[in-house]
Simulated assay, not measured.
Amino acid sequence: MSISVRVLLFAALQDAVGESELTVPLAPEDATSTALLNALVDAHPAIGPHRPTLRLAVNQRYVRGDVPLADGDEVALITPVSGG
Score class of each variant (00 low, 15 high):
Val58Pro: 10
Asp30His: 14
Leu13Tyr: 02
Thr79Trp: 00
Val41Gly: 06
Gln60Leu: 11
Phe10Ala: 02
Thr23Gly: 08
Asn59Thr: 11
Arg6Pro: 00
Leu77Gln: 07
Leu37Phe: 08
Arg55Ile: 05
Pro52Phe: 10
Leu26Thr: 07
Leu22Phe: 03
Tyr62Thr: 03
Arg55Cys: 06
Arg6Tyr: 00
Gly72Pro: 04
Thr23Trp: 07
Tyr62Gly: 03
Asp42Asn: 15
Ala16Thr: 10
Pro28Thr: 04
Ile78Asp: 07
Val58Ser: 06
Ser20Met: 09
Leu56Tyr: 10
Ser82Ile: 03
Val63Asp: 09
Pro68Phe: 02
Arg51Thr: 15
Leu26Ile: 09
Arg55Ala: 13
Pro68Ala: 13
Ser33Trp: 04
Gly65Tyr: 07
Leu9Tyr: 01
Asp66Tyr: 09
Gln14Lys: 15
Pro52Lys: 10
Ala35Gly: 11
Val58Gln: 10
Gly18His: 08
Asp42Lys: 15
Val75Ala: 05
Phe10Lys: 03
Thr34Arg: 15
Ala57Met: 12
Leu40Gly: 11
Val7Leu: 01
Val17Leu: 02
Ala27Thr: 10
Gln14Val: 01
Ser82Arg: 02
Ala70Ser: 14
Leu13Trp: 02
Ala39Phe: 01
Asn59Arg: 12
Ser82Glu: 08
Thr34Gly: 12
Ala16Lys: 07
Val63Arg: 03
Thr32Ile: 04
Met1Asp: 06
Pro25Met: 03
Asp42Phe: 02
Gly83Arg: 08
Ile3Asp: 03
Ala12Gly: 06
Ser82Tyr: 02
Leu37Asn: 07
Val7Arg: 02
Leu77Asn: 09
Asp73Asn: 13
Ile47Phe: 12
Ala16Val: 07
Ser33Gly: 14
Phe10Thr: 03
Ala70Thr: 13
Gly48Ile: 02
Gly18Cys: 08
Val7Trp: 00
Ala57His: 09
Gly48His: 07
Val7Gln: 02
Leu77Gly: 11
Ser20Tyr: 05
Glu19Val: 02
Leu40Arg: 08
Val7Ser: 03
Pro28Arg: 14
Glu74Tyr: 00
Val5Trp: 01
Asn59Gln: 12
Ile3Asn: 09
Val63Thr: 12
Gly83Ser: 10
Leu26Ser: 12
Gly72His: 06
Arg55Thr: 14
Val81Ser: 11
Ser82His: 04
Thr32Ala: 04
Arg64His: 14
Gly72Val: 05
Glu21Asp: 04
Tyr62His: 13
Leu36Val: 08
Ala57Asn: 12
Arg51Phe: 06
Gly48Arg: 14
Thr34Tyr: 04
Ser33Cys: 12
Leu77Glu: 05
Glu19Pro: 05
Asp42Trp: 01
Ala11Thr: 06
Ala12Phe: 00
Gln60Ala: 15
Val24Asp: 10
Ile47Asn: 07
Leu8Pro: 00
Ala70Leu: 11
Glu74Asn: 05
Val24Thr: 13
Met1Thr: 08
Val58Arg: 11
His50Ile: 01
Leu22Ile: 05
Leu54Met: 10
Leu77Met: 08
Ala39Ser: 15
Ala16Trp: 07
Ala39Asn: 11
Leu40Met: 14
Thr32Leu: 06
Asp15Tyr: 00
Ile3Met: 07
Ala43His: 09
Ser20Gln: 12
Pro49Asn: 10
Thr23Ser: 13
Ser4Lys: 11
Ser33Tyr: 05
Arg55Gly: 03
Val5Arg: 01
